[in-house]
Design a protein around this nucleic acid. Structure first.
Length: 777
DNA sequence: CGGCATTCAGTTTTT
DNA sequence: CTGAATGCCG
């Protein structure tokens, strides 16, 4: 037996050796959480627990894979038998086994977000609703929110509260859309991401004998990143562990950054209520970062009101101050960071993998990519548009999905006329109308088209049906996923069409399809996969996380670029947190919603605590948005860090932003000037000149400082007026921009915008459905 | 039905 | 600026 306990501190050892009974580990950033989880599982196995009876839910498949590998090092081969994966993956596996109880087949499709939105769009059209009012995005989010809280379509329709809410938002038909959407998914034998949770809960609720089976099967249940679980996830895990009550959850409320998808910090409180005998262990010692970094992170998170008491500390060395880099534009920001990485590499002999650039939105990666390429620094981007979201990949996958499940309407819509075979929108509409009229599945109509629809497309549809049938035969003969897929790629004409396209992107698409086929081959050849059917491959693939994608070629020494969300659970020697500007981080949407920004602040906290030895913040004074150069203000988050930890690049320690905290009202222009004076001249090669006149809202008067701690500058609470009567010439007040005059109203369909000249900040265009305005009389 | 021109909306974050 | 969606014509 390996003596893995010797290197652990007291609370860590407690968590590892805790036997039966509920356990909650509050694990601060960098406190060795993964180690504890790994050893805990290893410890259980060494004490005779059957790996088949351990369920471990992690956040990404990659995290699961890594943990499995680490456990294997301790306990050996047995580690493979642990049920380990994301909530979605594990529940999909259970649903696949038990599908028939819910009226699904085990070949059910999994709709991704695009499929869901496309289906919603069709439904909106079919119900003759205005697609400008009922935007697929909005409707989808509403439905998703309901499902995450386990509210069914019928519950939704029956609840007058939701109706009132929807009517207030001028979207009274959401309930009907939800119902129709659910029905269509069911008819398509398809589940969306949320259904994987929602339906698992239905399964366990309505079929106690099935619940009972899994309750007894899973003797120990473990949940990682507990702060990011939503109501559905918590309820299911609670049910699963109700018999043995051996549930261990690990989380950190300060790192809860998924509220937008239903995560509920309340779960941490509920846990203590639901399992009163729980043992709570706090891991507070940080082994990852320097004192400066830990303390800076603490100074930020201390501003949040909602938090668990916890004292994260470290005995590591003090470390250098946090650099603050000011750039004049997004492109210069890229160059400055790339140069800094280059110099750090040379001076300290670091490798590319020691660096990470973290940003708020995927779109920000461009400037950094260009700058890194120019300096010949290898990088990898995690997230963004992933391999499996590319058109050509989705096309082939749609074929495969349709062969496995002929009810998959979204896959059908994708491939019916691909490659072009003379079947247009009219024909597709006829087919779906006919299917609805005769109350039969779409495939029934397609495979017997002459019986249902007459028209010039009859012949091409018949040959399409024959093609699909020939593919299905392969499947029924028991051919493995690779054999079927490679045949389909050729016989469908997808590969030929791409081959004939001799453009650069045509070539790369062809290669992508080949790469997909390779991935399928690997899947089939991997001895760990017992189920090599196409159906099994498709379900695996649709649940891949962006972080899961393969580390391409053998060249693994790369700088990592990703969103802060993607960086959760990772650590790097040097971290660059970039784009620290108001409206970007914190994001415009959060500012407009005028919530307390606590989640954005936690995100900032996560970003800071990724760094081990060196941390750098950067922001740009101007930035291109949709080809327009806009002026930016430095993020309020820069002011929220204890200023003693900051240092302007190549300058002396900052005098700090004490002025701000004292509310002495220096303008933020003042702050910029301070930094400008302390910053050395921008490096040679700065050819770019910023045309400040191009900015949409270049203020003549300095902008007011960011309000302290997200509160209004005025002491009385701000109550927005009803803007439906707003007219040109009205005087208004905005919580952030102050007082102003309406210069112009811009009505475009259902969108009502107002161009307002604010007294201090200049002209702004506000969308009235979002704007928080008070009309002054 | 398919191809071309024109218009329009969109940038949080992810399973 | 870009990709998607709409509209018009052969």
């Amino acid at each position: 037996m390996i003596d893995y306990l010797s290197g652990l501190n007291e609370p860590q050892a407690q968590a590892v050796t805790h036997g039966p009974g509920p356990l909650m580990i509050i694990a601060g950033a960098g406190s060795g959480k993964t180690r504890v989880l790994t050893f805990r599982i290893a410890h259980l196995i060494e004490n005779g627990v059957d790996p088949f009876r351990i369920l471990s839910l992690t956040f990404t498949n990659k995290a699961a894979g890594e943990m499995r590998a680490r456990i294997e090092k301790v306990v050996g081969y047995e580690a493979r038998n642990i049920w380990m994966g994301t909530f979605h993956a594990v529940f999909a596996k259970i649903l696949r086994i038990e599908a028939r109880f819910l009226g699904y087949t085990s070949d059910f499709s999994i709709y991704d977000t695009d499929d869901s939105k496309s289906l919603i769009k069709s439904i909106v059209k079919e119900l003759n609703l205005d697609d400008k009012t009922y935007k697929a995005n909005v409707v989808f989010n509403r439905i998703s929110g309901a499902k995450n809280n386990l509210i069914s379509a019928d519950d939704y329709l029956a609840n007058p509260l939701f109706r009132a809410d929807d009517e207030a938002a001028k979207l009274p038909e959401i309930g009907r859309l939800y119902k129709a959407y659910t029905t269509r998914c069911f008819q398509a034998n398809a589940m969306d991401f949320d259904d994987l949770l929602f339906n698992t809960n239905v399964l366990f609720r309505d079929f106690p004998e099935i619940l009972n089976k899994y309750q007894h099967k899973f003797q120990y249940v473990m949940v990682d990143e507990f702060q990011d679980t939503n109501v559905a996830q918590y309820l299911i895990t609670k049910k699963l562990s109700a018999v043995h009550r051996n549930i261990a959850v690990v989380g950190d409320d300060a790192q809860s950054i998924y509220a937008f998808r239903g995560a509920n910090i309340q779960n941490i409180l509920n846990f203590e209520r639901d399992f009163p005998e729980v043992r709570v262990v706090k891991l507070e010692q940080n082994y990852r970062s320097t004192q400066t970094i830990v303390n800076a992170a603490n100074s930020v998170i201390a501003r949040n009101k909602a938090q668990f008491k916890k004292n994260v500390f470290t005995t590591n060395e003090e470390g250098g101050l946090i650099d603050v880099v000011k750039a004049s534009s997004d492109n210069e920001e890229g160059r400055l960071i790339a140069t800094a990485i280059f110099e750090e590499k040379v001076n300290k002999g670091l490798r590319n993998t020691d660096f990470a650039i973290l940003y708020r939105t995927n779109a920000q990666s461009r400037a950094f990519e260009e700058a890194l390429r120019r300096l010949n620094i290898k990088y990898r981007i995690i997230g963004g548009l992933s391999f499996y979201q590319r058109k050509e990949i989705k096309d082939l996958l749609a074929y495969l999905r349709f062969i496995v499940n002929q009810n998959d309407e979204e896959a059908f819509k994708r491939i019916i006329n691909l490659p072009k075979r003379g079947i247009g929108d009219t024909t597709v509409a006829k087919i779906s109308v006919s299917a609805a009229e005769h109350r039969v599945p779409i495939w029934e109509v397609v495979s017997n088209i002459s019986r249902y629809v007459a028209g010039r497309a009859t012949l091409p549809i018949e040959s399409f049906a024959t093609l699909i049938k020939s593919f299905k035969i392969l499947l029924e003969e028991g051919k493995d996923a690779y054999a079927v897929a490679s045949h389909v790629a050729k016989a469908s004409g997808i590969l030929r069409e791409l081959y004939e396209d001799k453009t650069v992107e045509g070539l790369s698409r062809y290669e992508n399809v080949q790469e997909l086929l390779n991935a399928i081959k690997e899947f089939v050849d991997n001895p760990d996969n017992e189920d090599k059917t196409l159906s099994s491959f498709l379900q695996t693939v649709s649940l891949l996380t962006t972080a899961d994608e393969s580390d391409d070629d053998g060249d693994t020494d790369r700088v990592t670029l990703m969103t802060i969300h993607g960086a959760k659970g990772l650590e790097f020697k040097n971290v660059y947190v970039v784009g620290l500007e108001e409206g970007l981080f914190p994001s415009q949407m959060m500012l407009e919603k005028r919530e307390d920004l606590e989640e954005e602040r936690r995100l900032f906290y996560v970003a800071i605590t990724r760094a081990e030895t060196k941390l750098t913040f950067s922001y740009a004074e101007s930035r291109y948005n949709w080809g327009r150069l806009n002026m930016c203000e430095p993020s309020r988050f820069l002011f929220e860090v204890d200023q003693r930890f900051l240092m302007m690049t190549k300058g002396r320690r900052s005098g700090g932003m004490d002025d701000y905290r004292n509310n002495a009202e220096p303008s933020s222009m003042n702050f910029i000037r301070q930094i400008a004076n302390r910053t050395s001249q921008t490096p040679k090669g700065t050819t770019e000149t910023v045309k400040s006149s191009a900015g949409v809202s270049s203020p003549k008067v300095p902008t007011p400082p960011p309000p302290t701690n997200g509160a209004n500058t005025s002491s009385e609470p701000f109550v927005a007026s009803d803007t439906s009567t707003l007219e040109e010439g009205n005087r208004v007040e905005h919580p952030k921009f102050g007082k102003g005059t309406v210069k112009k109203m811009d009505v475009n369909g259902t969108d009502r915008k107002a161009i307002i000249h604010f007294d201090t900040t200049g002209e702004k265009t506000l969308l009235l459905s979002f704007a928080k305005l008070r009309i002054l009389r």
